[in-house]
Structure formats: C-alpha cells, structure tokens
C-alpha cells in the first residue's frame, strides 16, 4: 500500500509487473474511470427549518481518510437568490457541482433576465436529477446534498444523495449528523407543524449545539464551521435575506467532561 489512492486495490507492480497500457491504443491515460469511493471528504451538513426560514451549517474540514487534509473548505454555497446548498462526501465531486454545474446553470438563468430565476425547489429538482442521472450511469457524484432555502412562501429543506434518493423533512442532517444531530433537532422539530413555533434564535442555537456535539464525537469534524441563515417573508417569493457566517467557532466548547469518562481512549486504568 502506498499513499496514491488510485493505486489502491490494484495488482502490485513489484509482483505482477507494470500494467501494459498499450491495450488502450493511443489513449495511454487508461480506461474511463468512475468514482468507486470518495477520496477527500467533508463530514456532516446539518439544517433546521424555523418559522421564517432555514438554518444550515457545515464545518470547514476536508479529510483524506483519517488525515485532516484541509481546514478552510467552504461546503455551503449560495445558488441563485433563494437557495443554499450544503454538501458532504467527496470534495472534488462537490467542487464539480458547485463550480461547474451550478455555476453554469445560474449564469445561463441570469442571462435570460426575465424575472424567472430558479428558487430552492427548482435547484433541488435539478440537483436530484443530476444525482440520479449520474448514479444511473454507474458514475455517481459521491455526495449527500442538503438544499435549504425559501420557496412557495415558506421555508424549504430537502436532501438528495449519490443514489438519487430524495426526501424532505423539517430537520435534516447528512453523514454522522443523521445519527447524532437529527435526534437533537427533532426534539424541537418533530413534524412540519412544529416549525411554526421555532424562532430564528432557537434554530440557530440548536444548530450550534449540534455542531458542538458533532465535534465532540465525529472524529472527522473540526471546531470551525460556516452557517447560513435564510430568512424569507411569509407567503411571498420575494428574495429572502441570506446571512452567511464564515469561520464560526464553537461556543463554550470544552473537553473537561471527558476527564471522568473511563473504559476507552488513552487511560491506562
């Protein structure tokens, strides 16, 4: 095993000799390869609806296996005027989606200048089709995407993953967050009706709490994250206010509680 992931799982040159690339003819680069596993990855994205909008957050870490490879990666992206997309999973696939697909989509839409910009549900529908289409080509984009925004006069939140599976819920989290954050979020947002009773401050506080819990127990997370808050005007599709807070640090985070925990870790007794 070496540190080139593209060599993993292939016959070793020192045992079998180097691969005869002439079988590809002039295209010595080799056959077309599809993603079989994620390489550089981002961990959970968490999001919660509240009365007037949605809060969504993702930390800034990109891991290479267990190596904390980059600590300044933005995994949230504003798309158009009504939408924030958050991605976990493969970072290069995320960048392809953000920098190529969505960028081109929005440029083409803006160019029309006819007042028919794409809102959250349109972006979500588009992304779902792209994800499902790629999985059907057996060439998936290795991500779980959360789409948060404002549409039809109310908050919008939905998920699409590498299989093209789609679903919507008042509280969503991808990756580790599906285990650790969702139960916390569902305490205040058990169903769609309860969203009306959640204030913006409450939603932000709950998401902050989730980020903290995830940092404590998700080994592929970090203590710096980006949070976006979409706030719309009820009953209208007017452009919502989108506040993006970057480089947010965890509040009142401390490992003190771990001192008393026994049974695993570095303790000898």
């Amino acid at each position: 095993m070496n540190h080139f992931p593209e060599a993993w799982g292939r016959p070793r040159d020192d045992v079998y000799g180097s691969y005869d690339r002439s079988v590809f003819g002039h295209d010595a680069a080799g056959p077309t390869q599809h993603t079989q596993q994620p390489i550089v990855t981002g961990t959970s994205v968490v999001a919660l609806k509240f009365k007037d909008g949605v809060v969504i957050a993702a930390d800034n870490l990109a891991s290479y296996g267990s190596l904390a490879r980059f600590n300044d990666v933005e995994r949230l992206r504003q798309v158009g005027t009504h939408t924030i997309v958050g991605a976990s999973g493969d970072v290069s696939d995320m960048q392809f989606l953000y920098e190529k697909q969505l960028e081109n989509l929005i440029i083409a839409e803006d160019y029309q200048e006819d007042g028919h910009g794409l809102r959250a549900k349109h972006i979500y529908s588009y992304l779902s089709r792209v994800m499902y289409h790629r999985r059907s080509k057996m060439d998936p984009l290795w991500n779980v995407l959360l789409v948060a925004g404002w549409d039809d006069g109310k908050p919008f939140l939905a998920s699409a993953d590498l299989l093209g599976t789609t679903f919507s819920s008042p509280a969503l989290a991808s990756g580790f967050g599906a285990h650790l954050a969702v139960p916390l979020l569902r305490r205040i947002a058990p169903d769609e009706a309860s969203v009306a009773n959640i204030t913006r401050e409450q939603a932000i506080k709950t998401i902050e709490e989730c980020m903290k819990v995830l940092f404590y127990r998700d080994a592929r997370s970090m203590n710096k994250y980006t949070m976006a808050i979409v706030t719309g005007k009820e009953g209208t599709n007017d452009e919502p206010d989108i506040e993006i807070q970057k480089d947010v640090s965890l509040k009142q985070q401390s490992w003190k509680f771990a001192e008393k925990i026994r049974g695993y870790g570095a303790q000898t007794v």
């Binding site: 998920s159 599976t165 679903f167 919507s168 819920s169 599906a178 285990h179 969702v182 169903d191 769609e192």
Partner: peptide, 8 residues
C-alpha cells in the same frame, strides 16, 4: 436504521 423522513 435511520428514519430519513416521516412524511414522504
């Protein structure tokens, strides 16, 4: 074992 959504 995860419940993705209760209203799909």
């Amino acid at each position: 074992y995860n419940i993705n959504s209760r209203d799909e």
